[in-house]
Design a binder for these strands. Structure first.
Length: 266
DNA sequence: AAGTGCTGCAACCGCAATCGA
DNA sequence: ATCGATTGCGGTTGCAGCACT
């Protein structure tokens, strides 16, 4: 889909691609290690979390999503996630509700904020410990050509790990690498697991389908009522972002140290 | 079947940063 | 220090495919 080839360029062999275009096409499309297809549930949540932290810094986000390009993440955000947040009444730029109804945190929100603060402190401590570690950008051609997979793993993933511990209010992701081949979807609030979810092969809706035949489905249905996908999405988003992370895109708040950590990423 | 509108996404554009002579 | 070339990045465009009428 999308633009295949320029109309005015390729009647013969001569593609009107400059070096810049070729490079871009390699990075965004031809590179052999690019993961194509639908974004997994895990990837969707990672993008949302990263967007809350980083704003429209797509390249930095791509560093946390193995085998996904910044362009792909940007497109996915603009065409899927942004619309979904708008539909849920959440401002996709500020990650806050478009109404001001929840400006005063509730009791449970305070708990979430405490959890976030704990995660933040943990991340800060880790930052100090690892301050001499080198952070490399896997997208950079030099790094791409010379680094092995363990080297490509971005250190800032640990921030996400900490955050995902907070997100666990509704469901949680595994604590291993975000690019792990198999994920385990968990429902800690009701003590359920859905182990057939496979990262990279199913999208958000598919990952729900994978538990439909489970004998745990009934319990899930009792917990997640009609419109569950949106509610699920919304709740996860809320817990993970605007109430637990009292931050703005400009970073002018208590999370500066985390922003420093993020800013240290490529 | 034909026309219209919408969607997804590869590609383009312009600017800033970096590199190297 | 200067300057042209290259690279990196985020915003935007425009086309193919699809759904709908």
């Amino acid at each position: 889909m999308g633009r295949r080839l320029p109309l005015n360029g390729h009647k013969e062999v001569g593609l009107k691609r400059c070096g810049k275009s070729c490079r871009l096409r390699w990075i965004n499309y031809l590179r052999p290690d690019i993961k194509r297809g639908k974004f997994s549930l895990q990837e969707e949540h990672t993008i949302i979390q990263l967007h809350a932290l980083l704003g429209n810094r797509w390249s930095a986000m791509a560093a946390h999503l193995p085998k996904r390009t910044d362009n792909e993440i940007k497109n996915y955000w603009n065409t899927h996630l942004k619309k979904r947040l708008i539909k849920l009444g959440v401002d996709p730029m500020t990650h806050k509700p478009r109404t001001d109804a929840s400006s005063i945190p509730s009791g449970s929100n305070l708990t979430h904020m405490a959890q976030w603060e704990s995660a933040r402190l943990e991340a800060e401590a880790r930052l100090v410990r690892d301050s001499k570690q080198v952070v490399l950008n896997p997208i950079h051609p030099k790094n791409y050509l010379t680094l092995n997979h363990s080297q490509l793993r971005p250190r800032c993933l640990d921030v996400l790990k900490a955050w995902q511990g907070v997100v666990a209010g509704m469901f949680a992701f595994p604590t291993q690498d975000l690019g792990s081949p198999t994920s385990t979807l968990r429902f800690p609030a009701i003590g359920l697991n859905a182990t057939s979810y496979t990262d990279g092969e199913m999208g958000f809706d598919d990952s729900l389908k994978c538990i439909e035949n489970s004998n745990q489905m009934k319990e899930i249905e009792e917990t997640i009522t009609d419109g569950c996908i949106d509610e699920w999405f919304e709740d996860s988003f809320r817990v993970g972002n605007y109430e637990n992370v009292p931050m703005a895109v400009d970073g002018s708040n208590c999370c500066d140290s985390v922003f420093d950590l993020v800013n240290s990423s490529p």
